[in-house]
Design a protein around this nucleic acid. Structure first.
Lengths: 211, 211
DNA sequence: TTTTTTCTCAGTCTTTAGTCTGATGTTCAA
DNA sequence: TTGAACATCAGACTAAAGACTGAGAAAAAA
């Protein structure tokens, strides 16, 4: 019995390339293709594929959202991410969403076939570069902690407003609190972030994409 | 006589997809494929293709550098960019490098074939989104001027230091000038940028990638 | 050559930022 | 129930930022 595969990518050429190769494999059967996440979710319910090959960046519904839905509705379906970038902001959300494997588009046809066969046995295949990212992340989260993770909710809120360029008075008015309170928050923020003034705090916020 | 095409992309799957489709067209003949820019330049000299379909982001030599070399060495070769993103930082350098057309990977197989046939007659095919970018660029350079373009060299220098989080005194020490002078510059910067204080100026610098 | 721009700096003044100490009420976990 | 963490605010103080006016020197443009 062959492995039923659904191919999801917004680039027609990529789908065509993948499918044309997979069709040469006897134990793999491409049962359908989709050009966006929403369509992918629909087709999964209809076709019940064993494996879904999906890109992350797509128009209608992105690959992460689609992965989340698919793994929630059909837990037996294995999702393989096949994307171009090794972005920290994509890798972890994707794996948390329930993806089994993570491949890059630089992967060869054989790599993809291997990943599909491994998926059938619930075995993950993670691209080395992605794996390196994961190690880095684990190391950093285990040892170091980002300064802003020490901030309380309120302080984070104030920091964001500093990052928007508001003065203490404006922050006070925005949050409906006194300027004295704002000053206290700001002082705490500065010491927690290890910076000297609000300008550096604002820069910190931007560099760490808190805004 | 058929149109000789070279396909350049670091993703095997994409090459496969494009080639498998182009081969069904009688008047198009895929004479070769390359996985990076350096290889593309070599193959161009060897195979003398009429049209080169090339991606922009590749490892060894990027598509822009390759396009520059190809159009310089073989002016009759038409280069068609086929990439994923509509980034201002990519579109214009690519066209300046001598690319004839600019397609997105969301293009259908037919779009690509049309672009190849048009290229044969030296006709550009520009993706609507890319064209929109170009219009926007032309309009903005013609009419509007970014606030920071009003700044003098020295002021820009000071603004960057503000964006690094330096105080007036630190800026003065860095540039070997008096703090009074720095204050004058800062005041001028603030009024030219239309912001209220140095924090907003720092944010401006970051948002406009002056740092 | 004259004018304009740019960079430099001084003095004065007001406002804002930031630190420090201390205090009150709440919530939530030990 | 007793801390601990959090959000709130006050008063007093110092330091920094920023506005405004004015001005000299050099370089570039008219």
């Amino acid at each position: 019995m062959s492995i039923k595969v659904l191919v999801v990518d917004d680039h027609e050429m990529v789908r065509r390339g993948i499918i044309s190769y997979l069709e040469t494999e006897d134990d793999i059967d491409v049962v359908g293709e989709a050009s966006d996440g929403a369509q992918a979710v629909e087709l999964c319910q209809e076709l019940r594929p064993d494996v879904v090959l999906i890109d992350l960046i797509m128009e209608n519904m992105d690959g992460i959202a689609a992965t989340k839905k698919i793994t929630a509705e059909l837990p037996d379906t294995k999702v393989i991410i096949l994307t171009s970038f090794v972005d920290e902001q994509l890798v972890f959300p994707a794996l948390e969403a329930g993806a089994l494997s993570y491949l890059l588009k630089t992967a060869t046809a054989e790599d993809i076939v291997k990943a599909i066969r491994s998926a059938q046995q619930s075995q993950s295949v993670i691209e080395p570069k992605v794996a390196a990212q994961m190690v880095h992340r684990l190391q950093s989260t285990a040892t170091t902690k980002m300064p802003h993770e020490e901030l309380t909710e309120r302080e984070l809120e104030v920091l964001r407003l500093i990052g928007e360029g508001l003065t203490n008075q404006e922050i006070a008015d925005t949050l409906f609190i006194g300027i004295k309170t704002v000053k206290t928050h700001v002082s705490n923020i500065l010491s927690k972030l290890g910076v000297n003034d609000r300008t550096q705090a604002a820069i910190y916020a931007h560099r760490n994409k808190l805004i």
